[in-house]
């Protein structure tokens, strides 16, 4: 039994596109009204996205995380949900320049890949497997938010140290808020992601797949885990200001992408 993408996915995609364009336009025009327009469009997209995810859950009877389009879409949904909560709490305008395009990109991948939604093979169903999928996706979403805020913290630190203002100066919240949010998101995301990986290892061990078969997604996932661990450590020891943070962040992001794309394999 398979299910094709519904119209709600395309509605979500259209709203996210509009929201991202409005947010990026506000970066150049420095107009807060455009940001609000972008936020409204993104919330519209989020509602459609939620309906789409709900439809998959109802039709397949399990969370939408069993193949690439489902997993990517679910991570995008979680990332926006986290971003919305942070926006309400801290009014962080600058994060939208990273988060909106990321959400749009992920949902576009989900729509373009065109893999039909699958009903999970009953032989593979188990609580450990569900826990692995849920914990991994929630962990990834939290880590991506942490990544976005760590970049904001780095930019804010550079701007304050060099006494220069970039285009984002007005939109970035205080250095302490950026640090606090990135540290918490990375710490929580890393813990959840670790549990997700452990659940995955346990599940692999119980099935024919073996303890660790070193396919692309496993290598990507473990590399991302190491790099996010290093990033978190740099916040704990307050060494996040160094240039290596940029390289680690980029590497962690690529590794996560590789791990997610590897879901197809």
């Amino acid at each position: 039994m398979t299910f094709a993408p519904t119209v709600t996915l395309y509605v979500a995609l259209a709203c996210y596109t509009l929201g991202t364009l409005a947010a990026l336009a506000s970066l150049f025009s420095r107009d807060k009204r455009l940001q609000y327009l972008g936020l409204v469009a993104m919330i519209g997209g989020f509602v459609a996205h939620t309906v789409w995810i709900g439809t998959i859950c109802v039709n397949t009877g399990h969370p939408p995380i069993t193949n690439l389009p489902e997993a990517v879409s679910f991570v995008a949904w979680l990332v926006f949900a986290f971003e919305l909560a942070l926006w309400i709490r801290y009014r962080v305008y600058a994060a939208v320049f990273f988060v909106y395009p990321l959400v749009l990109l992920m949902l576009t991948i989900s729509a373009v890949v065109g893999e039909n939604f699958q009903v999970l093979d009953p032989n593979l169903r188990s609580n450990v497997f569900t826990a692995h999928l849920l914990l991994s996706t929630v962990g990834v979403a939290s880590l991506l938010i942490g990544l976005a805020f760590s970049l904001l913290a780095l930019m804010q630190d550079r701007a304050l140290k060099n006494k220069t203002r970039g285009r984002l100066w007005e939109w970035i919240p205080s250095l302490d808020i950026c640090k606090k949010v990135s540290y918490r998101a990375l710490a929580i995301g890393f813990s959840i992601y670790t549990l997700g990986l452990l659940a995955g290892v346990l599940w692999s061990y119980r099935t024919d797949a073996g303890f660790m078969d070193l396919r692309v997604k496993q290598i990507g996932a473990v590399t991302a885990w190491i790099l996010f661990g290093v990033l978190l450590q740099s916040f704990i020891t307050n060494t996040y200001r160094r240039k290596r943070t940029l390289f680690i962040s980029a590497g962690a992001f690529v590794a996560i992408v590789v791990a997610m794309l590897g879901i197809r394999g």
Partner: peptide, 9 residues
């Protein structure tokens, strides 16, 4: 203003 950019509140 700069103090607020560093510490927020």
């Amino acid at each position: 203003e700069l103090a607020k950019k560093i510490f927020g509140d």
